[in-house]
Design a binder for these strands. Structure first.
Lengths: 116, 116
DNA sequence: CCTCCTAAGTTTCGTTTTGGAACTATGGCA
DNA sequence: TGCCATAGTTCCAAAACGAAACTTAGGAGG
């Protein structure tokens, strides 16, 4: 069975994961909750490649989780902000954060403390 | 940056995702919370391939989230149960379920209602 | 005018992961 | 002696990923 077929699964967890359950999407959303909104910011903060970021952003916009917003009219530039629907994923990120703090101690720091 | 390097990220969300943030792992855990524990059960319930399931189970055991337990001594057979650490991912699954019920309606059923 | 700069992507190409299906191992049971 | 169940492993083609270069659209400075 292919991953994408999960979007119509009987289980709501599976349906949710069909959108946010890949390797980078939740990290983009974390960045949004930290106040980031621009392409280059996501790149720097998360460490993912432009290639993948572009594809994920498209998917999140299609899913109604992010909104693509023009923020400059000189050279047309766009950024991404959470919709209401996206905001409601906040609790999920909080549970992952709580679990991580308790069960995944840092072994060697990545020197990105100021990454937000 | 490679996915696996996230295990030492400064952000606890990223560290958590370095274990459970791939395409099938959280679905295995959902099944565990539903009471499933055997290889063939996971296969049937989730629809993933044996190949991937075997690899994910190994990773979850290494991470201390599942425990591999011998349940038969005739032909030696093993199943998998949540550890304390694994149990504590329950709240995360609940938030994903809640979000999915609200924001991801089923369009065409997969006929797996009895899957649990 | 010419060149360099920023910022959001897109393209290309080699590597890794995934999906599907067949195969293996171990012992029970008829 | 076959046949069955169950937990994996192996093989290979297809898809996704990662790194890095390239594109597009205007701004700023000389």
């Amino acid at each position: 069975m292919k991953w994408t077929e999960l979007s119509d699964n009987w289980c709501p967890v599976a349906r949710t994961l069909s959108i946010v359950g890949d390797r980078w999407t939740l990290l983009i959303l974390r960045d949004c909750f930290l106040g980031l909104s621009r392409f280059e910011q996501f790149i720097e903060s998360s460490g993912m490649t432009r290639h993948i970021l572009a594809e994920r952003l498209k998917r999140l916009v299609d899913a109604g989780i992010l909104e693509r917003r023009q923020y400059s009219d000189g050279p047309k530039r766009y950024d991404y902000v959470l919709t209401e629907k996206g905001q409601e994923l906040g609790p999920a990120l909080m549970t992952l954060k709580t679990w991580g703090k308790k069960h995944m101690p840092v072994r060697r720091p990545t020197g990105n403390e100021a990454g937000a």
